[in-house]
Simulated scan of single mutants.
Amino acid sequence: MEVSVLNINGQDTGKKVTLNDSVFGIEPNEHVLWLSVKAYLAAQRQGTAKSKERSEHAGSTRKLIRQKGGGGARRGDINSPVLVGGGRVFGPKPRDYQQKINKKTNVLARKSALSQAAKNGEIIVVEDFALDAPKTKDFVNIVKNLKVEGQKALVVLPEANKNVYLSARNLPKADVIEARNINTYKVLNADKLVMTESALKAIEELLTK
């Protein structure tokens, strides 16, 4: 599949790039996409929820009533889970929610997401660019010129660029990512993928080695 290369003014440069069929032209595997997205979202969870159990509550440990002769069940200390203010039974504890996903599965998931984006015409290739200073107004102009204003745009760069990142940080529907960090969730979550020529080559090298 051939895609025209635009400049940051939204003009056609006359150049075309051919998307690698082994990365952008496979049949998307929906199950693998689901596994990858599930693992990504699980990894975003902090896992710091914690409740106090019976032994962790501050309170007297004396028995509230005598053990026999009261006509009811035996009552333990005031920290009992059955009493208001007592400990919690089987409450949450700090844990790691990360899920294991095989490398080959992860690669296939990213290829599937990129292929789906290419099939839907969501990929825009632009010439390599850089901003002289972090300025949101300049980034907004680029978004307008590329006709992705109001859409969730994922801008993929070959390497970290602080000025571009800071310029896009205040825009709720724009995200900037390095080619080596591209993941299934962000590709699927974006309405448009804006890739520089160098980022496109980096992605193809990354997913075909």
Rank of each mutant, 00 (worst) to 15 (best):
T61V: 07
A39D: 09
G25C: 11
E122L: 15
D132L: 15
S115A: 09
D21Q: 11
A73Y: 09
K162H: 00
K173C: 00
A199E: 05
A39G: 08
N9A: 00
S55I: 13
A42L: 07
A113D: 10
T136C: 04
A39K: 03
V176I: 04
V164H: 03
E127D: 13
Y185Q: 07
K147I: 14
V187F: 01
T18L: 07
H31Q: 02
T196N: 07
E2Y: 05
N120A: 06
V82A: 06
A117F: 13
D77L: 08
A199W: 10
L19I: 06
A153Y: 04
A202W: 09
E122K: 15
P28R: 00
A168M: 03
N170E: 01
L6H: 13
V37T: 06
D191A: 02
L171K: 00
A113P: 10
N9F: 09
P172C: 03
G47A: 09
G10W: 08
K186Q: 05
E204L: 03
Q67C: 02
S4P: 15
D21Y: 12
S198L: 14
A190S: 12
R169G: 02
V37R: 04
I177G: 06
S22I: 13
E27S: 06
E149P: 14
T136D: 04
V107I: 12
P158K: 00
I203Y: 10
V164M: 04
S4T: 15
A118V: 13
A179Q: 07
Q46H: 14
V23F: 09
A168D: 01
T184H: 04
K15R: 11
G14Y: 12
I8H: 04
E178M: 14
G86S: 08
G76P: 04
F90W: 13
V17N: 02
W34I: 13
N29W: 15
F139I: 07
T184Y: 06
T18Y: 02
K38S: 03
V84K: 06
T13E: 10
V187A: 00
V82R: 12
M1S: 11
N145F: 01
Y165V: 12
Q151V: 13
Q44N: 07
K152Y: 10
L6S: 12
I78D: 00
G86N: 10
I65R: 13
E149C: 08
T136G: 02
A160V: 11
N163R: 04
V143S: 08
K38F: 09
K162N: 01
K93F: 08
K137W: 00
A130Y: 13
Q99G: 10
A42E: 08
V3S: 11
R88N: 00
Q116A: 07
Q116G: 10
T196S: 05
G72L: 12
Q67G: 06
E159P: 04
G91N: 05
V82I: 14
T105C: 00
K152H: 13
L206W: 03
I65H: 14
E56S: 07
K16R: 08
P81G: 12
L193T: 01
E2T: 05
Y165F: 09
G59H: 05
K16P: 08
G69H: 13
E159A: 00
